[in-house]
């Protein structure tokens, strides 16, 4: 079983399968493996995600560049003190979305989803919904395969590389993947997953990649927060019956078009945006020495 476009996938789903089921079948047949191996591999990824989303809540992890560290703990304490203002699902997603990039920047183990720079978005949505709605491991795995299907289509037809198409291709793609996963885990249809993914992509269209000192720290970490919040927002919209005005496939193509129009300075070169603010430049000098 295989599919090459969202339309082909939706056609397969119209025969009564979920996106997750089709994606699992595709992996077994096209990847020439068996379903037990595939499931175990995904469980391993889930466990790494879980550890990376939770460890920084109680342990401040210093990053190699020193630009971030301790954000997840601060947010968690804020919530434990009853001071959070976003509601518990969103506040929890916020905490986890900051934890994983902290783990990543301290050379901890994470799962790139689809990239290391955007690795906080999907775990944030998975674990916030798990806690609030008592989701089972099976439901989380379904969410991951759904996210994987969306990410695969974006890899194939658009881009998941900041160097190629800006942050919209990294956090934007992660957000679309997580939006589709959230819609699926909360009982939505395959079409609703793609509506959520399409709206999520469109909301972050044009987001530039401008890492300070070229490091995967700032503004990458806080952009994971917007990726997760956007995913939950778009999933709720789709689940309420709102349809994406532009279908997912067209939005993916639009994302790539916008990405290739971004100037080189705004595609992971650290030559634009946040990276060249006076503060961004000062951090670069401090970390690497020498100013340019």
């Amino acid at each position: 079983m295989d599919f090459h476009t969202a339309e082909e996938l939706l056609e397969l789903c119209a025969q009564g399968m979920s996106i997750a089921t089709v994606m699992r079948e595709r992996e077994v047949t096209q990847g020439e493996t068996d379903s037990v191996t595939v499931e175990e591999r995904m469980k391993k990824a889930l466990n790494i995600m879980r550890n990376s989303a939770h460890t920084p809540l109680t342990e401040v992890l210093p990053s190699t560049g020193g630009l971030i560290g301790g954000e997840a703990e601060k947010l968690n304490n804020n919530m434990l003190n009853g001071k959070n203002i976003c509601g518990s699902v969103m506040s929890k997603a916020l905490i986890y979305s900051q934890a994983v990039p902290e783990m990543n920047a301290s050379m901890g183990v994470i799962v790139a989803a689809p990239t290391a720079g955007s690795s906080g978005v999907l775990p944030a949505v998975l674990f916030a919904l798990e806690e609030e709605f008592n989701l089972t491991e099976k439901q989380l795995l379904d969410g991951m395969f759904t996210a994987g299907a969306v990410g695969y289509l974006l890899m194939k037809h658009a881009s998941v590389s900041g160097a190629q198409a800006g942050c919209q291709a990294e956090v934007g793609s992660a957000s679309a993947m997580a939006a589709a996963a959230a819609a699926a885990m909360m009982g939505g249809t395959a079409q609703q997953s793609f509506d959520a993914a399409s709206i999520a992509l469109s909301n972050l269209l044009g987001l530039v990649c401008d890492p300070i000192a070229g490091l995967v720290e700032a503004p990458c970490q806080s952009r994971n927060a917007i990726g997760a919040a956007n995913a939950l927002t778009c999933a709720e919209m789709a689940l309420s019956g709102i349809k994406a005005v532009v279908p997912f496939s067209e939005m993916a193509a639009a994302m790539l078009r916008v990405g290739t129009k971004l100037p080189n300075e705004l595609r992971e070169t650290a030559l634009g945006g946040c990276a060249v603010t006076p503060t961004g430049c000062a951090h670069n000098c401090r970390i690497f020495g020498g100013c340019n």
Binding site: M23, R26, E27, V38, R41, M42, K44, A45, I48, M103, N104, A105, S106, M107, G108, V109, I110, V111, A112, A113, P114, A116, S119, L122, M144, F145, A147, G148, A149, G151, Y152, M155, V160, M177, V216
Partner: peptide, 11 residues
């Protein structure tokens, strides 16, 4: 799917 959800890696 593990090219998308992966690699598992040290950051």
């Amino acid at each position: 799917v593990f090219d998308v959800i992966g690699p598992n890696m040290v950051g």
